[in-house]
């Protein structure tokens, strides 16, 4: 019970501190994009518009007001769920983000699972081979892996499994001919709900490469942190003391070593998983995956300000949500923070 109270307290505190962060971030986003050399008014008019028409449009869009007033208006609209209309797609930004965000979330969540599994297994393996000849080789290998970022992994896996062996699909989310069920917006979930197992399997097949690319790219740093935290934990007296009480090595590792070593690993995961959302952008482009990353890059190429602002803010919220989730987990696992 007391644990729930402390976690609730943390959640409230974190959400409260997230609000000023989001306000500042939105202001920064607004300002950075206002210093752009492009004129949003001119862009939303046909190229043959007259100067008067542009001026009228500027007035209508509020562009001749002082910057802080513009920001106030923008923020006010934001509170009412209106981020504006895309200049390029001529659609509400909210609905554009709403239709692409679930795909990105699915990708990110599965990739996190992959990264966790690979990271923990690899970390345990690295720890297991400590002091042996294999250690140096494994350590070297982990640095090799560390040098391949997710976007190189994406291309690499695409070349091997998509182009050379042609065993896995690498464009989009579904092969042509499959119909997309829409219930929640999450494709995997929706195809299961509607009972379309072939669609589900096809979608899953499409996710293997992007998720592997993201997950594998993230795992080496987790491996290395877990390994070094385990090594640190094993320097501590309580491990030696557990040995002197005659506990088995296996029990010491699981109950005493891992339980302590998981804490630093977890705090790294908080940061890394936040950054993973940035990684999805590249992976989405490479695999033509219809998520927020593709939307964002399209917007950037077309200088589509409302989308850039909206998507930027969404990424920021995603990072904050993940860090709050990880912090709560950390709190559950670390009694030093939980009870005083």
């Amino acid at each position: 019970m007391r644990m729930f109270a402390t976690i609730a307290k943390l959640l409230v505190k974190r959400v409260l501190t997230a609000i000023p962060i989001l306000l500042i971030v939105s202001a920064l986003l607004f300002c950075i994009l206002r210093i752009l050399p492009v004129d949003p008014a001119a862009m939303s008019l046909p190229p043959n518009a007259t100067v008067q028409e542009v001026e009228a449009m500027r007035a209508e869009m509020g562009l001749n007001l002082p910057l802080y007033q513009q920001y106030g208006i923008w923020l006010n609209k934001l509170f009412h769920g209106d981020i504006g209309r895309s200049i390029h797609f001529r659609q509400d930004v909210t609905s554009l983000i709403g239709s692409t965000l679930p795909a990105t979330i699915e990708l990110a969540v599965i990739a996190m699972g992959v990264a966790t599994v690979f990271g923990l297994a690899g970390g345990l393996f690295l720890f297991y081979v400590r002091g042996t000849r294999a250690e140096a080789a494994m350590d070297f290998l982990s640095i090799l892996l560390l040098s391949l970022p997710e976007f190189l992994w994406s291309l690499f896996l695409l070349l091997i499994f998509g182009v050379f062996f042609e065993v896995l699909p690498f464009t989009g989310r579904l092969s042509p001919g499959f119909e997309r069920p829409v219930v929640t917006g999450f494709l995997l979930l929706d195809s299961l709900i509607t009972g379309k197992i072939p669609t589900f399997l096809n979608a899953l097949e499409h996710m293997i490469l992007p998720c592997l690319a993201l997950g594998i790219a993230l795992s080496p740093s987790l491996m290395r942190v877990l390994r070094s935290s385990l090594l640190d934990a094993y320097q501590d007296d309580y491990i030696q003391q557990a040995r002197l009480r005659g506990l088995s090595e296996k029990r010491i590792l699981i109950r005493h070593g891992l339980k302590n070593a998981i804490l630093p690993t977890l705090s790294l995961m908080g940061v890394q998983f936040g950054f993973l959302f940035g990684g999805t952008l590249l992976v989405e482009i490479i695999y033509s995956y219809p998520g927020m990353g593709n939307l964002m890059v399209d917007a950037i190429r077309n200088a589509d300000l409302p989308i850039i602002q909206g998507a930027g803010l969404t990424y920021c919220i995603a990072v904050l949500v993940i860090s709050i989730v990880v912090d709560s987990l950390y709190l559950i696992l670390n009694p030093k923070l939980r009870v005083r």
């Binding site: 936040g274 950054f275 959302f277 940035g278 990684g279 952008l281 850039i308 990424y315």
Partner: peptide, 10 residues
């Protein structure tokens, strides 16, 4: 609170 790739793009 920004993924670095997104921030550098913006």
């Amino acid at each position: 609170s920004f993924p670095p790739v997104i921030l550098s793009l913006i």
